[in-house]
């Protein structure tokens, strides 16, 4: 019986438990058009990666607490001091100083507007979102960048006012824990596990 792989960190090192890969034998690929001659083999691969969020961990940790964090360059010597970033940037792309982490939840609630969008009927392997996926890019007042995310209810339009919702139950600690709905959407219309705060 296999056990899902889990990882924690202790004394600065990864501690790994469980199964991180599953072994499946190769099978032959044969040519139906040419007396079933051998063409090649399948090479099954089933493995789990271990990945750190590093300095961005605060952003992903706080989504399930109903918070959106971004960053701001506060380096007085930077030509672009005061620029605010969401997506979160650990370092300023201009001066490379470490940015200040700031809570942007309120700005997002009050000023989020759809900059562009796309309704996508297809997805790739490992997708966990419901299809069609309503990709949206959200712009905010005072923030220099435009966040990519997805709309959970309604039909997206450029210029539509939206508000953030958060997967507070059974969070995945990925960017999918953050979603958006049109302004005025009632709590009961939110997807299971999501709330406004």
């Amino acid at each position: 019986m296999s056990v899902f792989g889990t990882v924690s960190v202790k004394n600065g090192r990864y501690r790994i438990k469980g199964d991180f890969h599953h072994i499946t034998p190769s099978t032959p690929i044969r040519n139906q058009d040419y007396p079933w001659g051998l063409v090649g083999v399948t090479n099954p691969r089933d493995m789990t990666y271990i990945h750190t969020y590093g300095g961005e961990a605060v952003f992903f940790e706080n989504l399930c607490k109903g918070k959106i964090h971004g960053t701001r360059c506060d380096n007085p010597d930077c030509t672009f001091k005061g620029t605010v970033y969401l997506p979160f940037r650990i370092h300023c792309p201009d001066c490379l100083a470490k940015n200040t982490v700031i809570d942007l939840t309120d700005v997002c609630r009050k000023t989020a507007v759809i900059h562009t969008y796309m309704v996508c009927e297809r997805s790739g392997a490992f997708n966990t979102l419901d299809r069609p996926i309503r990709f949206i890019n959200v712009e905010f007042e005072g923030i220099s960048t435009i966040l990519m995310s997805y709309l959970s209810t309604g039909t997206p339009e450029i210029g539509m006012r939206v508000v953030p919702i958060f997967r507070t139950q059974d969070p995945t600690y990925t960017i999918t824990d953050l979603s958006w709905v049109p302004t005025g959407t009632p709590q009961e219309a939110l997807p299971k596990g999501f709330s406004f705060e």
Binding site: F60, P87, M118, C120, L129, F135, M148, T174, T176
Partner: peptide
């Protein structure tokens, strides 16, 4: 695409590209 900020959103590059087409 960015593995933390984009890839989990559908695992479909067309989606990340097509928002630009839409605009």
């Amino acid at each position: 695409a960015d593995k933390d900020w984009e890839t989990p959103l559908g695992h479909i590059y067309t989606g990340y590209y097509a928002v630009m087409a839409q605009k």
